[in-house]
Amino acid sequence: MSEDEDHPQNLQQLFDCIDQAAEENGRVSWSAIMDEVGRRSFGPLLLLAGLTVLAPIIGDLPGVPTLIGMVVLLIAVQLLLGRHNFWLPGFMLNRSVPKDKLHKALTWLKKPARFIDKLLSPRLAVLTRGPMVRVIAVVCLGIALAMPVMEIVPFSANLAGIALTAFGLALIARDGLLALIALVFTGLMMGVVVYNLV
């Protein structure tokens, strides 16, 4: 089985993986979720990060966007350095969410997942491979660095979540058109954040 086949290929598969994450004392840790999603796959990890920020209940908790920004920062830097197995420090991996809140968020997210999956298809795949993955990593690095500031600009963290989700989906589905749309959206989002800060 290839590495791509080992990891989620769409939103529904990603949610199935998260649902299988082990729980301890009624809570699910980031480490357990990453074990299910795959620690070598940039696309699913980006998608997971974006959905965490977007998810109601979880993404609205103070500090969550900053934590996710740190996760994306570390993963993007490691990708740019050529690492194949992504590492995160224990204090991040040990962070957890209540299983019931995670289940509620997943239930909400599963509703549009099937529709979104139908819109994705392999097209302009060259924009999701090789050097372009590193370009996407650099853009995500910029988003990650901006996320702590986004916590004070209303709704901007949600916009960052949309961008990360789109990049993750583009890499998973080999959808270069979505990658282009995500790049344009990120530029507009950064413009909105800067405008609100000045």
Rank of each mutant, 00 (worst) to 15 (best):
D117P: 04
L93A: 14
G59E: 04
K111P: 05
I143F: 08
F86K: 04
L164A: 02
L54K: 03
G142D: 05
L48N: 15
S96K: 01
T128H: 08
L93P: 04
L51Q: 02
I58G: 13
V28I: 02
L46P: 06
I68E: 15
N25P: 05
G38T: 12
V64H: 01
V135E: 10
G142Y: 07
L119I: 07
N85R: 09
G26M: 04
L81P: 05
S156V: 12
P44W: 12
S41K: 09
T165S: 03
L80R: 12
P65Q: 09
G38K: 06
L79P: 10
G168C: 11
L73S: 08
L81E: 07
L88C: 14
L119D: 01
P112D: 04
T66L: 07
A137T: 08
M34Q: 13
L109G: 13
R27P: 03
R129K: 15
V133Y: 07
I152L: 09
T165D: 07
L171A: 00
E151R: 04
I136A: 03
K111L: 13
R129I: 11
P89N: 15
V133F: 00
A163K: 02
F86T: 08
M70G: 14
A160L: 14
P62C: 06
L124D: 04
V153I: 11
R27F: 01
M70W: 06
L74Y: 12
I143D: 04
R27S: 04
G168F: 02
N25Y: 01
D100Y: 03
L81D: 08
V149C: 02
F155G: 10
M150H: 05
K104H: 10
V133L: 13
I68F: 08
D60S: 04
A170L: 02
P44N: 10
L127K: 02
L73Q: 01
L141G: 04
V138G: 03
P89W: 14
R114Q: 06
A55Q: 06
T128L: 10
G69A: 05
K110M: 13
L54I: 11
V64I: 15
W108I: 13
K104M: 11
R39I: 05
G130E: 11
T107A: 13
T165F: 05
G63H: 07
L102T: 12
L145D: 12
P122F: 00
L73N: 02
L124F: 14
N25D: 00
L159R: 07
G69Q: 03
K118Y: 01
L80G: 12
F115L: 06
T165A: 05
V72M: 14
G26F: 00
L171G: 02
F86A: 06
M92E: 07
V133S: 00
G142I: 11
R39F: 06
L79E: 09
I136P: 00
T52M: 10
P44E: 09
A32H: 01
V64R: 15
G50A: 11
A157K: 05
V64D: 00
G59C: 13
L54P: 03
F42L: 10
K118L: 01
I68N: 12
R40C: 08
C140R: 06
A49Y: 05
V77P: 10
L81A: 12
V71M: 14
T66E: 00
E24Q: 00
D60F: 12
L141Y: 07
A76L: 15
V126M: 09
L119R: 03
I162P: 05
I33D: 00
F42V: 11
S156D: 04
V71K: 15
A160V: 07
L61K: 03
M70T: 15
T66V: 11
D117N: 04
L88E: 09
L109K: 08
